[in-house]
């Protein structure tokens, strides 16, 4: 009896009442909106010159124009294609190597040492080599994105597989699972949460790699849009490009979260 009373009493403390939550969200918008207003004020009064940073209103107008004349759409398509194929390539390498070294002792002995050594290299620092190897076309950009994706996926998949509870594997052995069933039903599912962490990190580095790669030399894509705008002191277009990068990163992050919620339904929440 005492227990249930305590349980009821504790509730309002841990879960905020609905009204408070409703109020809280709009309240959090006060300072960001104030900052944008301040920024607009500084631009309108001439304190902030458009050569340094365009005003919010100008940026919004430019975004509208860039969308209307198709420039932004084209750049967007080019950049997202680069990330897509770079991610595909790096993901394939990371997953294949991660599975090989996670599931087989020989795989681990042979693969893990070189991968662990290579991952200490800052992959963005590889640009000079990639340019020498692949030139300045699409290839170095894909290679940079791929190398940013492969390592976090490999590391987390490998760690996830190695963290499998040996107790579950033992139980499965006695209960008559085949080796294949042990991998499919015990080892791989237990590696999923850690692999999803790797996937989120991989998306983060993929966008970062793309942004850096598109600074090198690009004749299309969001990086080209931004670099081109810089030459004409169009800070409004630069900011539009940056905002699109940010939105893309947020989108892939949200997608992985969605995937997590779906795949990890079995976890206690």
């Amino acid at each position: 009896m005492t227990l249930s009373i305590a349980g009821v009493a504790a509730r309002p403390k841990s879960v905020p009442p609905k009204q408070a939550r409703k109020l809280k969200l709009p309240l959090r918008w006060i300072s960001p909106i104030a900052l944008v207003l301040l920024w607009q004020l500084a631009s309108s009064t001439g304190v902030l010159s458009p050569d340094k940073l365009a005003s919010p209103v100008t940026i919004a107008e430019s975004a509208g124009e860039l969308i209307a004349d198709g420039q932004l759409g084209d750049a967007f398509a080019v950049s997202i294609t680069r990330v897509f194929f770079g991610f595909l390539l790096g993901g394939l390498v990371g997953v294949v190597l991660g599975l090989a070294s996670g599931l087989s002792r020989w795989g681990e002995t042979l693969l893990d040492p070189p991968v662990q050594m290579l991952r200490t290299l800052p992959h963005l620092g590889l640009i000079p080599l990639f340019i020498l190897w692949f030139g300045i076309g699409e290839e170095p950009k894909l290679a940079l994105v791929a190398s940013g994706v492969a390592f976090p996926l490999y590391l987390n998949l490998h760690a996830g597989i190695r963290q499998t509870d040996p107790g579950l594997v033992e139980a499965a052995k006695v209960l008559g699972y085949s080796r294949f069933e042990r991998i499919v039903h015990v080892v791989l599912p237990s590696a999923v949460p850690q692999t999803l962490v790797g996937l989120r990190i991989a998306f983060g580095t993929a966008w970062l790699s793309l942004i850096v790669a598109e600074q090198i030399n690009a004749d299309a894509g969001l990086g080209f849009l931004i670099n081109n705008a810089r030459e004409f002191l169009r800070t409004d277009v630069v900011v539009v490009g940056l905002v699109v990068y940010a939105l893309l990163g947020l989108t892939t992050d949200a997608l992985v979260r969605l995937l997590e919620r779906r795949v990890l339904r079995w976890q206690k929440r």
Partner: peptide, 26 residues
């Protein structure tokens, strides 16, 4: 044939209860 139950239930948390029982039975 041998079967076992441990101190910890050692169920696969990512498989439904019935699947935990049916897996490995073929």
């Amino acid at each position: 044939t041998v079967s076992i139950a441990f101190q910890q239930p050692r169920l696969l948390p990512w498989r439904k209860v019935w699947k935990n029982i049916a897996l490995g039975l073929h």
